[in-house]
Design a protein around this nucleic acid. Structure first.
Length: 727
DNA sequence: ATGGTCGGCAAG
DNA sequence: TTGCCGACCATT
């Protein structure tokens, strides 16, 4: 008899809470569990789903042991996936249970999907024919089995007609297996005509897929060079080899347009995975991925934690996108974790971007990654003509922000019946409000950054923490009425200015805080594509995914925005963002124009954008970073403790210093302080400890965490990801 | 007295 | 992370 079947076996179970190690549970006699089994266990007063982990049950007070309640009828979490969880926990200094939690996010999926009640035709004929019955029978013959209401609907009759026929034995009940969420993709559905460069790139990738070993390849090609078609070929190869495929996209790029494009190539859509997938669908997708029915998933970063059983390729599109960084609970960069997943699973990973991150480019140049470049000569005609507007020479009218040069071009574009885009990466009306009498500036009480006026909502809003208050009439400091002034532009204010210049034009403002949420946004985007707007004024979110076929002018309202915030990645980020936004124009081959309003036309970023010479920019930026020891070369890794308020952050800093007097500098960083952006985009107060090497930081972090009691509550401890040496 | 909110704590 | 408990405060 194997030890497995002894009556009171004890196994480790990873439960979804911040415990450092798996908990031990006893296995009731006769219960079949092994590493990877998903089980229901009692945890304190509640029942949770956990994963049976590797190793033995450890030593716990036998009196504490409680039995596993149930083993779900569900494929086991694979060995690779378990190693992946352990690896991420170790690397990010997160409790493994919290990593496991990311994988257990679809509770209802642990039970098999129920079969569907349906009816099918028998040989019997109805006693008498009616028009309605005729339609039902005719419709029914076009398929094998139907749901009662589905058939009624398709035949255009009430479901009582069906009931009548069923009573006569014309239909009988059957149970159908659950419907697949998507049809299987066909790798040879519509093999594309590739240009020679694309062909070469595609061959390189498909060879890597066929080799079936770990590799990382960066596909680097300007907007419109056909990267997507190329990696689709890699996907086709993986599918032919019987492997599943994951395409990671920044959430916002997961558009209808992308899914359609996939469908055009493979004859079916990929399964989608993102945060606002309806719960029902979430569960179906999770289950069908686990069972191998779903072959391709296009998903946001959390899709990395889907229980693939035969994953053979991960594609990370727009690999440079900062949205790949998860910044709560477990901090990770999905791009890097995708590489780790490939390493563990022994399969290729493809990183794609028109504007690669510096670290991926460095990894490619150093030979750690492979690189495939698409020079995209054939698409050059479609690239917009790009010019910088020197705002010192062509300043806007007093009180305005749009240069006459941009306004002129807009007028011309309107006259041609084409669309213009004004891009400004700032929500709201004005980023700062002050009192003209006493100079009072409106600040967030919680995080001391300026409050942004949202005129449409009549509020002052903190963009860091979400604090908001109604916009007062009088200054809270000196009490003077009607002397508050808005300083600087946001998209709402640009819209106001545009309306003043072009009262006849149809103007749409797009920003993430738009009333009506994602649905409304989707509708607006569609309306724009259909030509129902003349001028679009938008933030970040116009940069991604969507194609506006008639958009021939892109005006960057403030190209310098984001350059001066002290972030070591500022130039890189600005370059990436501006490339993407200007790439929105000219997708149709029509002559198009991109204008950058800037006060520093000599800045390397502006020069790179205008000349199209990305390589020179990257080279320069790389050298500069290396010289300064900035990421991805130097002092990047650190422990971060983030807190909601400054006081809180300060008190944690004191506690940590007390606990570990040998600690290197612990800085408290607020929203305004520069190096924050090293870690990510969403600013809260953080404590940062710099180090030269990740491993040192990690070792130090452990000592610190052991010495101090682990900060609780609103506080998180994490190590940022050193983008170079994580394997 | 009653009810609501909040901080601390334990969970196998 | 979640749920529970006891402490504390404010109101019925």
């Amino acid at each position: 008899m194997k030890p497995d079947s002894q009556p009171s076996r004890v196994v480790p179970v990873l439960v979804p809470m911040p415990a450092e190690r798996p908990y031990s549970y006893s296995v009731p006699a006769g219960m079949q569990v092994g590493p990877g089994s998903i089980v229901r266990v009692p945890l304190g007063p509640r029942q949770v789903a956990g994963i049976v982990w590797d190793g033995d049950g450890g030593s716990v007070d036998p009196k504490k042991l409680r039995p596993i309640e149930e083993v779900f009828d569900c494929p086991r979490v694979t060995y690779d996936m378990r190693r992946f969880v352990d690896w991420i926990a170790e690397y990010t200094l997160s409790p493994p249970g919290m990593v496991a939690r990311m994988l257990l996010r679809a509770p209802a999926a642990f039970d098999p999907e129920p079969w569907v009640e349906a009816i099918e035709r028998t040989d019997a004929a109805p006693d008498r024919m009616t028009a309605a019955r005729g339609r039902v029978l005719e419709t029914a013959d076009t398929g094998l089995a139907w749901t009662r209401s589905g058939l009624a609907h398709a035949a255009g009759v009430s479901s009582t007609v069906i009931d009548g026929l069923k009573a006569q034995g014309v239909f009988r009940d059957v149970m159908l297996p659950p419907r697949p969420v998507v049809a299987p993709p066909d790798p040879s559905y519509a093999a594309p005509q590739l240009m020679p460069d694309q062909e070469r790139a595609a061959v390189t990738l498909t060879e890597k897929v066929s080799a079936g070993t770990f590799s990382v390849t960066l596909i680097d090609g300007v907007t419109g060079s056909g990267k997507t078609e190329v990696y689709f070929e890699a996907i086709a190869a993986a599918l032919k080899n019987g492997r599943q495929v994951l395409i990671l996209l920044p959430e916002i790029a997961l558009t209808h347009a992308f899914l359609e494009r996939f469908q055009d190539r493979f004859g079916a859509k990929p399964a989608e995975w993102h945060s606002d997938l309806p719960p029902r669908m979430r569960e179906k997708v999770w289950r069908q991925v686990a069972e191998g029915q779903v072959r391709v998933v296009a998903g946001a970063r959390s899709a990395l934690f889907l229980p693939f059983r035969e994953l053979g390729l991960v594609v990370v599109d727009e690999e440079h996108d900062p949205a790949y960084k998860q910044e709560d609970r477990v901090y990770y960069n999905a791009r890097d974790m995708a590489v780790v997943r490939g390493h563990i699973g022994g399969f290729p990973v493809v990183l794609a971007s028109a504007t690669p991150s510096l670290e991926s480019r460095v990894n490619a140049l150093s030979g750690r990654y492979d690189r495939v470049a698409l020079p995209a000569r054939f698409a050059e005609a479609a690239l917009p003509d790009l010019k910088a507007i020197d705002m010192r020479r062509a300043p806007p009218a007093r009180g305005g922000f749009l240069s006459p040069v941009l306004l002129d071009e807009t007028r011309r574009t309107l006259e041609r019946g084409e669309q213009s885009l004004f891009f400004l990466n700032r929500r709201g009306y004005a980023p700062l409000t002050l009192c003209r009498v006493c100079g009072h500036r409106f600040q967030c009480p919680d995080c001391s950054s300026w409050l942004v006026e949202h005129r449409f909502r009549g509020q002052l809003v903190c963009h860091h923490c979400g604090h908001n208050e109604p916009r007062p009439e009088a200054c809270p400091e000196c009490g003077t009425l009607d002397h508050l002034v808005a300083c600087g532009p946001g998209v709402e204010r640009i819209a106001e200015e545009a309306v003043g210049h072009f009262p006849e034009a149809r103007i749409i403002v797009l920003s993430s805080d738009m009333l009506g949420g994602v649905r409304r946004l989707r509708l607006e985007l569609e309306a724009i594509s259909k030509g129902e707007a003349d001028i679009v004024i938008g933030t970040q979110l116009v940069a991604k995914g969507h194609n506006f076929p008639n958009m021939t002018l892109v005006g960057i309202v403030d190209a310098d925005l984001g350059l001066a915030n002290g972030d070591p990645r500022a130039a890189e980020r600005t370059f990436q963002l501006l490339s993407q936004v200007t790439g929105r124009a000219g997708r149709t081959g029509k002559k198009s124009l991109g204008l950058l309003q800037t006060y520093q036309p000599e800045h390397p970023v502006m020069k790179a954008i205008v000349s199209g010479d990305a390589e020179a920019f990257y080279e320069r930026e790389t050298e500069e970073r290396q010289r300064a020891g900035m990421p991805p070369f130097g002092r990047l890794a650190g422990i971060i403790v983030s807190a909601a308020t400054r006081q809180e952050a300060e008190s944690h800093a004191r506690a940590l210093r007390r606990a570990a007097p040998a600690a290197p500098d612990i800085q408290v960083l607020g929203p305004a302080e520069a190096p924050l952006a090293l870690i990510g985009g969403r600013h809260r107060f953080r404590l940062l400890i710099h180090g030269e090497r990740r491993s040192d930081i990690q070792k130090f972090a452990r000592t610190l965490l052991a010495a101090a009691e682990r900060p609780r509550g609103s506080v998180r401890v994490q190590v940022d990801i050193d983008p170079q040496s994580f394997l």
